[in-house]
Write a protein that binds this DNA or RNA. Structure first.
Length: 567
RNA sequence: AGGGGUGUAGCCAAGUGGUAAGGCAACGGUCUUUGGAAUCGUCAUUCGUUGGUUCGAAUCCAGCCACCCCUGCCA
C-alpha cells in the first residue's frame, strides 16, 4: 500500500513549475520572450539579524523563481557595513536556508567584491560621475533639502577628475579621519527622489570587518555595492522588498554609469506580515533581550529557529509561502493560514500516540486484578505504511478529566454516570460509579468493561458516541509538555493606544507547562521527533528532554469543533 | 506639501476589453474507532470612489478618497 494520496507535497521543482504565476514571473516571461535577458541566478541578500517567516517568503521566492526558470540562486551577504556584520548571523542564516530545503549555487559576500567595487568607484571618478565631498554628515543632511524643496549642490561637486581620483586614493590609503570625506555620485540635487540627490557611495570607517579584517578603511554603501554585485554575479532579476522601490533609479544609475555588461533588474515585492505576531527586527530583539521569551529560538517566535524548535515542518513553511502568493500590496496574512499547512503536513506524517495531560484515574472493576494485555494500535490511519505498535492495557487506566462530566449536557458524548464510551483501540467501558474528594472534585471513576469489545468493536453492532484516548496507569511514563499558544492576544499587536506598546498585547498564557502522562513508547524519543497526541494536537520532542524524561512542545492543537459545540 | 507605490470577500490572491479562479477562515450536510481527517455544499450581481470611452470595463481615460514608503556616512 502506498501513502494516502491527494495532499502529498510536491517536490521543489514541480512546485516551481506548476503553480500559478506571480507578477515577477510575468516580468521574467516577458524578458525571456524578448530574448534580451536570459534567466540568470537570483540571490538572497541578507546581512545581519536572525531570519523569520517573512524571510522564508523571500527565500522561497528567490529559490523558487530560479528553479522555475532553470537558473541558479546564490546566497549573498551584503556585508558592506563592518560594524553590523557578525559571523554568528551568517551561520544561522545558512542553517535556516538549508533547513528550508534550498541549495545555493554559490555562497558570496559583497566583501568578496571590495577590490572590484573600488576599481569601479575609480572608474566613475575618472569619467566625472562621482566626486569626493568634504561636507560633514550634518552639512550633507542640510544640503540634501527637503521632500518638497530641492537640495543644494555641494561646493566640492565640481572638483576635477584628477583631484577626485587623488582624494579617493588617499581616502583608501587611510590619510583622512573617519567621517571627514565621502565619495558621492554626481546625479541631481534637485531630483524629487531623495535617493538621487548625490548619494554617498563610500564612507571612511576604521572598523574591523568580519571577513576582510583591517584591510579596508573605506566601505561601499549598500546602494553602490548592491547593484554592482548583482551585475558582477550576472544576476538578471534581483528581488527585494518594497521599501527599496525608490532606490531602483539609483540601482539602474550605478549599473549604467559603471557600464556593466549585465543589466540586472530590480523587482520589488511586499514583505510578509502575519496576524498575532510581530516581524520587525527591533521588536523581536526587544522580546528576546528583555526576557519576554527565552531566546531567538523560543518556540513562540516567528523566527525560523523558533519555528523549527516549535516543530513546524520545513515542508509546511514552503507550502505556506507558495500559497500566499507574491504581490506589491501591503497585506497581513492570517496566521491560521500558516497553521493550516502545518496541520496538513503533520496529519500525513506524524505518527499518533496517546498522552494524558490532565489525568483522571479509572478503575475497571470487572477487569481481573494483576492482568494486563497488549493492544496493537495503528500508528497513523492516514499512512498505512506507518505500521502498528503495542500499547499496554490494565485494570487501572488514566483518561482526560475533560472526558467525564458528572451532569452531562445534551451534546456531551463522553463519559458520565451510566454512559458507555469506547477507549480507542481497547474496550467499551461504562461508568458505574465515581468518587469525589472533600472538595467535591471527581477523583476516580469506577467502570466496567465489555470483554467482547476488544479492539474497540462491538459484536452486537451497538454503537457508542464517544471515543477517548487512555493510558495504562502502571505503564505510563511522565514527561513535561509545553503547551504553546499565540504570543500575542490580539490580531495586530502594533495597534495600541497612545503611550502604550506592542508589549501590552503579549498573551499571558502564551505557554503553559504541564506534567503529563505518556504512553511507554514515548520514553525514548529523539529531539525533533513529531507526534500527534490523539485528540489533542501535534507535539515535537524538545532538545531539553532526556532519555526516559521527555519534553514535548505543542506544535499546534488539532482543530476543535467540540469547543464550538459546547458554547 | 514633492516623489514613489497600493486598493478585488473576514484574510491572502488570480484576473492584462468578452461578463469575477484558487487557498485560508466561516457556515451547513455526509461519513468517521481522533468532536481530528476525509467528503459534498454555501459564501463578491461586483472589483476604493465618482464620472467618461466602448456593443461590452475589475481591466482603458480623468478626477477624488484611503493606506504604505522616502530627507542614514544603515540595509
Amino acid at each position: 500500500m502506498e501513502m494516502t494520496e491527494g495532499k502529498e507535497e510536491k517536490n521543489l521543482e514541480e512546485t516551481a513549475k506548476t503553480e500559478g504565476k506571480n507578477f515577477i514571473q510575468h516580468f521574467i516571461d516577458g524578458d525571456l520572450a524578448e530574448g534580451k535577458i536570459r534567466p540568470g541566478p537570483c540571490r538572497f541578500p541578507r546581512s545581519n539579524g536572525y531570519l523569520h517567516i517573512g524571510h522564508a517568503k523571500a527565500i522561497c521566492l528567490n529559490f523558487g523563481l530560479a528553479l522555475a526558470n532553470g537558473g541558479k540562486c546564490n546566497l549573498r551577504f551584503d556585508d558592506t557595513n563592518p560594524t553590523k556584520e557578525e559571523q554568528e548571523f551568517v551561520d544561522s542564516i545558512k542553517a535556516d536556508v538549508e533547513w528550508l530545503g534550498f541549495h545555493w549555487d554559490h555562497l558570496f559576500f559583497a566583501s568578496d567584491y571590495f577590490e572590484k567595487l573600488y576599481l569601479l568607484a575609480e572608474k566613475l571618478v575618472t569619467i566625472g560621475k562621482a566626486y569626493v565631498c568634504d561636507l560633514s554628515p550634518e552639512e550633507i543632511h542640510q544640503y540634501r533639502g527637503a521632500l518638497t524643496e530641492p537640495g543644494k549642490e555641494s561646493p566640492y561637486r565640481d572638483r576635477s577628475p584628477e583631484e577626485n581620483l587623488d582624494l579617493l586614493r588617499k581616502m583608501k590609503a587611510g590619510e583622512f579621519p573617519d567621517g571627514s570625506r565621502v565619495l558621492r555620485a554626481k546625479i541631481d540635487m534637485a531630483s524629487p527622489n531623495l535617493n538621487m540627490r548625490d548619494p554617498v557611495l563610500y564612507r571612511i570607517q576604521r572598523a574591523h570587518h568580519h571577513r576582510t579584517g583591517d584591510g579596508w578603511c573605506i566601505y561601499p554603501m549598500y546602494d553602490f555595492a548592491h547593484p554592482l554585485s548583482d551585475a558582477i554575479e550576472g544576476i538578471t532579476h534581483s528581488i527585494c522588498t518594497m521599501e527599496f522601490e525608490d532606490h531602483r533609479p539609483l540601482y539602474d544609475w550605478c549599473i549604467n554609469a559603471a557600464d556593466m555588461p549585465c543589466k540586472s533588474r530590480q523587482i520589488e515585492f511586499a514583505r510578509l506580515n502575519m496576524s498575532y505576531t510581530v516581524m520587525s527586527k527591533r521588536k523581536l530583539k526587544l522580546l528576546v533581550e528583555e526576557g519576554y521569551v527565552q531566546g531567538w529560538d523560543d518556540p513562540r517566535l516567528p523566527t525560523l529557529s523558533g519555528i523549527r524548535r516549535r516543530g513546524y515542518p520545513a515542508e509546511s513553511i514552503r507550502a505556506f509561502c507558495e500559497s500566499i502568493g507574491v504581490a506589491k500590496a501591503n497585506s497581513t496574512v492570517d496566521i491560521a493560514q500558516l497553521e493550516f499547512f502545518v496541520r496538513d503536513h503533520l496529519n500525513y506524517h506524524a505518527p499518533r500516540a496517546m498522552a494524558v495531560l490532565d489525568p483522571l484515574k479509572v478503575t475497571i472493576t470487572n477487569y481481573p486484578e494483576g492482568q494486563e494485555e497488549m493492544m496493537q494500535v495503528v500508528n497513523n490511519p492516514e499512512d498505512s505504511e506507518a505500521g502498528t505498535r503495542p500499547v499496554p492495557f490494565s485494570r487501572q487506566i488514566l483518561i482526560e478529566k475533560s472526558d467525564f462530566m458528572e451532569q452531562p449536557t445534551k451534546k456531551f458524548h463522553r463519559l458520565s454516570p451510566g454512559a458507555e464510551i469506547r477507549l480507542q483501540n481497547a474496550y467499551y467501558i461504562k461508568c458505574e460509579d465515581y468518587k469525589k474528594d472533600e472538595n467535591g472534585e471527581v477523583v476516580e471513576l469506577f467502570c466496567t468493561y465489555d470483554p467482547s469489545t476488544r479492539g474497540g468493536w462491538s459484536e452486537d453492532g451497538r454503537k457508542v458516541k464517544g471515543t477517548a484516548h487512555w493510558l495504562s496507569y502502571p505503564h505510563a511514563v511522565k514527561g513535561e509538555v509545553r503547551l504553546y499558544n499565540r504570543l500575542f492576544s490580539v490580531e495586530n499587536p502594533d495597534d495600541y493606544p497612545e503611550g502604550g506598546s506592542f508589549l501590552d498585547h503579549i498573551n499571558p498564557q502564551s505557554v503553559e507547562v504541564v506534567e503529563a502522562y505518556l504512553e511507554p513508547s514515548l520514553a525514548e524519543v529523539k529531539p525533533g521527533d513529531r507526534f500527534q497526541f490523539l485528540r489533542q494536537g501535534y507535539f515535537v520532542a524538545d532538545p531539553d528532554g532526556a532519555l526516559g524524561r521527555p519534553v514535548f512542545n505543542r506544535i499546534i492543537s488539532l482543530k476543535d469543533s467540540f469547543k464550538k459545540i459546547m458554547k
